[in-house]
Simulated scan of single mutants.
Amino acid sequence: MSTERTDHELLRAHVDGDPEAFGILFHRHRDRLWAVALRTMGNREDAADGLQDGLVAAYRRAATFRGDAAVTTWLHRVVVNACLDRIRAAKVRRTETLPDDLEEYRDRGSLAAAAPAADDPADLSVREERRRLVLGALAELPAEQRAALVLVDMEGYPVADAAAMLDCAVGTVKSRCSRGRARLAELLAPLLDDGSSEPDHALPRNPVCPGPVESDDAPRGPPTPA
């Protein structure tokens, strides 16, 4: 059956003219591609545009895929580059917090764990405020640093895989992550030094991997390409 074909087989079938192959390939990886675009761009509208740009580029450039990496790595590279191109073109310096509707995709891509429920409304309010501060700090990083941290610290990809997706050297990814973590440590100093004796799952892990923010809104999934 077509849905049992490998990623390489689907991409090759698309190049050979199969009208359904690329759609099957996209739906297979859409959750994680959407999560990466969402966290990289910082809001749903720009993430949808970045993802759309990336998918159009992948659709048109499929014949250039050399097969020297996994198809999913190549797809991530195209989507991340499309998002970074949009950020650079608009010279965006994000000040709003990152989106909070990733909970739906937690078990189908992102390795960030959900925060435990808080019984006390006051505790829940504090946790939500801290999550907003953490995600807001991440949004202030330069786009390249944010992309590296999203892939390595939030999505859990090995540094080598992230380097392939970002089309740069392993050392460059490590450097971007290091600088990004150092900057986040400065931005989040009030949270890290608040003297709280209990672990707070809103604080960064690894050391900067904020978990998904709980939301009262129904989560919305990634857009389907036109």
Rank of each mutant, 00 (worst) to 15 (best):
D100I: 12
S2M: 04
L149Q: 09
L184D: 00
F22P: 02
L10H: 08
D200W: 01
R127G: 05
D7L: 00
T6R: 01
P190A: 07
V150C: 02
T73S: 14
P222T: 03
E103N: 11
A218K: 06
A147T: 08
R88Q: 14
G50W: 03
D194P: 00
A82L: 10
R44A: 02
A90P: 04
A185C: 09
I24T: 08
Q145P: 05
S196E: 11
H29Q: 01
T40W: 02
P142S: 07
R183W: 00
H27K: 15
L192E: 11
G156H: 04
S110F: 02
P204I: 01
R66K: 10
R220K: 13
F65Y: 06
A164F: 05
P19Y: 14
A114T: 06
E104G: 12
S2N: 13
P207F: 00
A90W: 07
L55K: 13
A63N: 12
C209T: 08
Y157P: 01
L166A: 07
E155A: 00
L149D: 03
R176I: 06
P142L: 10
S215C: 12
H8C: 03
E129P: 01
R179V: 06
G221E: 10
A115K: 05
D46T: 02
R77C: 05
R77H: 11
G54K: 06
A169H: 02
R93L: 09
P190N: 04
A164E: 14
A182H: 12
